[in-house]
Design a protein around this nucleic acid. Structure first.
Lengths: 302, 302
DNA sequence: TTGTTTTAATACCCAATAGGTATCGATATG
DNA sequence: CATATCGATACCTATTGGGTATTAAAACAA
């Protein structure tokens, strides 16, 4: 009982006439008759009640007709979906992201991807950097959006955007009414610094830019999260240097100043396992690049 | 993309090994390899990512695997159900019945049939006799339970039960305290009679038995339905002769007496179109006969 | 009533496809 | 380093699908 014979049977029932059914199927009438006869022998069931050179469909035949229509439709749909899966229009995969990417390009990338590929099941999962990298390497996450600070032989890493830094000072600070500052002007200030363990990449960038400006930040407080840093500065504990994302939030007691020195911006990237770039991942990467190209750092509030 | 090749593909994915899959399918490994390759060419989709002499299932392949499992299961189920339909274990048909059969064997027949063939969709439809016969002849009803009073060349009619008649007299009537009466004792009584158009068979039986007893019933009132007849008698309008079914109801003001004369009982039958006795109908008829054999006329209340 | 048409089935035959065996080549394994 | 493993290829046979010609009996039209 194969799909080809079921298709023949459906044509016969639908037409009510072997000759017309054969014509519709593109075969001659005698082989069609034989195929239906063989189907009945194989099933050991009479599907057509012959009344001389005409027939009526039996109840078993009617049941088979209904089932066969469903099977054939299912097969056609499967064929279509397999092709769509092959071209990345269907399927499922997991994107892991770190906290800070949620405020830059993640929303745009996910939004564009879901719109472009509505039939792809995309699971978006927030993860700490220390968990994301092993998950990527182990295959439980397919793509990561993260701030890269290691070189990995296992992962393919593609930088998407570079985010500038800004100086954060509390309201009332002597620099608070300026739009910009040099790093030198922050040299003798108490510093709220991103910790080396909590945000290693930001820590490294801030330390390097200060050293290049000729001073070591006088660290009065360490913090992991950008919100924590901003909160301390807003409370008057000191100044900080943070990615411009911070300006997305209107923290009370905070002023954000451009840095006039030429400082290296902070990269954000996507990553996947080398040699495991499926069509879905390649499509995602393409959309992520387009979203990144359209991204602009946030303009600080007036 | 036929079921045979889908079965091959599922075996390959399930086993993760062409050789073991071939063994499980009962064919050699090379034709299996060629069949899968042909499937991929036909679909123009890579289903298996070959890594030297091993493979990984692609996402498209995984999707096809899931769909194929469903299609194969659907086909197996269809095969099973077609065979069950062929033997009358599945299918659907319509039983039409006239009002009076509902109080004799209809409940038992329907109950027994539904129990014996739970997967048959049985539609039970009450119909007036004048509509039931054309419906049987036209094919919109498959089996009828009715009181037969015509010979039909189109219908096959099989008597199931024969129901005795009883005399109905109002409470207070001179015969009310007897358990039985002869027809002769009713000769000069006013009669509530089943009408010739509303219940032709009962009308004919009652007229015949009275004529054989030597009198014509003095009809004071005609009625179509057995309930109407019983109501009139209970109201004191006269006496009546009715099928013993009437004793199933405790009508106020009514006494039911056996008839001591030898009178021809009232037949009830099933009918279907000649030459259209499907397996379902034959199964139904068998069960109807068994239910009829177990049926006993209602015992009048003490 | 008669001649013609219609229709699924059968007989005979050819073409296409499924499946078998032997073997290969490159990697994995012991 | 020798051997085993594994899917793929080459060559071949067996089986099945499909074609044409024809049949027989009912339906249809004149």
């Amino acid at each position: 009982m194969d799909l080809r014979v079921l298709r023949y049977f459906c044509a016969v029932v639908h037409e009510g006439h072997f000759g017309r059914a054969a014509a519709r199927l593109g075969i001659a009438q005698p082989p069609l008759t034989r195929q239906i006869q063989k189907l009945e022998r194989d099933l050991d069931v009479l599907l057509l009640h012959r009344v001389h050179k005409r027939f009526e469909v039996t109840q078993a035949g009617q049941l088979l007709y209904e089932r066969a229509l469903r099977l054939l439709a299912g097969a056609d749909q499967a064929q279509l979906d397999v092709r769509r899966a092959s071209s990345g229009e269907m399927g499922r995969f997991t994107v892991g992201f770190v906290h800070s990417t949620a405020f830059t390009i993640l929303p745009s990338v996910i939004g564009r991807f879901r719109q472009a590929y509505p039939d792809v099941q995309l699971e978006v999962r927030e993860m700490h950097y220390n968990n994301l990298v092993p998950a990527l390497e182990g295959g439980s996450v397919d793509v990561g959006l993260l701030r890269p600070h290691i070189n990995s032989r296992v992962l393919q890493i593609v930088t998407l955007i570079r985010e500038p830094f800004m100086a954060l000072v509390p309201v009332g600070h002597r620099l608070a009414n300026q739009k910009a500052t040099s790093l030198r002007q922050l040299a003798n200030e108490p510093f709220v610094l991103f910790s080396r363990t909590g945000s290693p990449l930001i820590h490294m960038h801030v330390m390097q830019m200060c050293l290049r400006a000729g001073f070591t930040p006088a660290t009065i407080q360490l913090a992991d999260q950008i919100h924590t840093v901003a909160g301390f500065v807003g409370a008057g504990m000191g100044v900080a240097i943070a990615p411009s994302t911070i300006t997305s939030f209107n923290f009370p007691g905070l002023r954000c100043l451009h840095i006039t020195d030429r400082v290296e911006p902070l990269p954000m990237a996507m990553a996947w396992r080398q040699g495991k770039a499926t069509v879905l991942i390649r499509n995602f990467a393409k959309i992520a690049r387009a979203a990144a190209a359209a991204w602009r750092p946030t303009v600080p509030p007036a």
